[in-house]
Simulated assay, not measured.
Amino acid sequence: MPSRPSTPPVERRFRGRIMGVGTTSGVRIVVGMWDRSPFGAFTDVFLELPDGTSVLLAPDEIVAAYVSGTYRFDTVSVVDVRARRTARGLELDAGALQVSVDVGTISPLGRLLRIVPKPVARDPRWLAAIDPIARLVAPGSGTAGSAGNGRREYYGVTGAHDVTGVRGTWAGEPLGTLAPLDPPVAFGFASMPRVPQVVDVETTIREPA
């Protein structure tokens, strides 16, 4: 009896920007600002606190369920998440987190990324092939890896700008000033680069049908 053909995985794509920064308080912040996604446009925030506790701040229950099923968190909170571009960079208001970020010029990583055409840079086949090189160029980061619930994830980064300053509070306490994102955050298979940056990215997540 002939075998049934395997069902192809479901593929979901998220296009937008990710910002990763460290602070001298020890709070490390990764913000996803998604212009296009299966859930519409939204912003979510990953935090890693000085004691290692990981926190997800999500704008609604649907996003909270999907993101917490893909990455690892100790705490998940649904809060009003608002991100606004400013002349200096970005202002973020997300529950107990208020942050202002200064964004500078294109980074050395961004200049390197310009070499690769964007359609290639977003292709999961390319991202799987270059993952070992990406981890050498930007320690702690990666372009392909395993995620939660049998999902496989690919980060197609096409641009990058330096973050030059950060101000704000978490739970009423000052964040301090800008610091490297070090050690790497541990929400998933990869972190952001050690040098604080905002990157243009298309994330592809493949999951069992």
Rank of each mutant, 00 (worst) to 15 (best):
E153T: 13
G159A: 13
I115K: 08
A94H: 02
V163W: 00
D102G: 14
V120W: 11
T169E: 15
L181P: 00
D123V: 03
V166L: 08
N149I: 11
L90I: 02
P108E: 02
G104P: 04
S141I: 01
A171C: 07
L113S: 00
A129F: 14
R85V: 08
A134D: 10
E91M: 13
L97S: 04
I115Y: 09
I133Q: 09
L178T: 05
T169P: 07
D102F: 10
L109G: 01
P174I: 08
V137E: 07
V101E: 02
R167W: 15
S146V: 13
Q98T: 13
G142H: 02
A96G: 07
P180G: 00
G168K: 03
P132W: 10
A129P: 08
A179T: 00
G89L: 03
R85Y: 06
G140W: 00
P108Y: 06
A186R: 13
V103A: 01
L181Q: 05
G150P: 10
A147E: 12
P184R: 01
L127Y: 06
I130C: 07
L112M: 12
G104C: 09
V99R: 06
R111W: 13
G142I: 04
V157C: 03
Y155C: 10
L97D: 03
K118D: 14
G89M: 10
P117F: 06
F187V: 03
P183T: 00
G104D: 06
L181R: 05
S146H: 14
E91Y: 04
H161N: 12
G140N: 01
T105R: 15
V163P: 00
H161D: 14
N149S: 14
G89E: 04
L136V: 15
E91I: 09
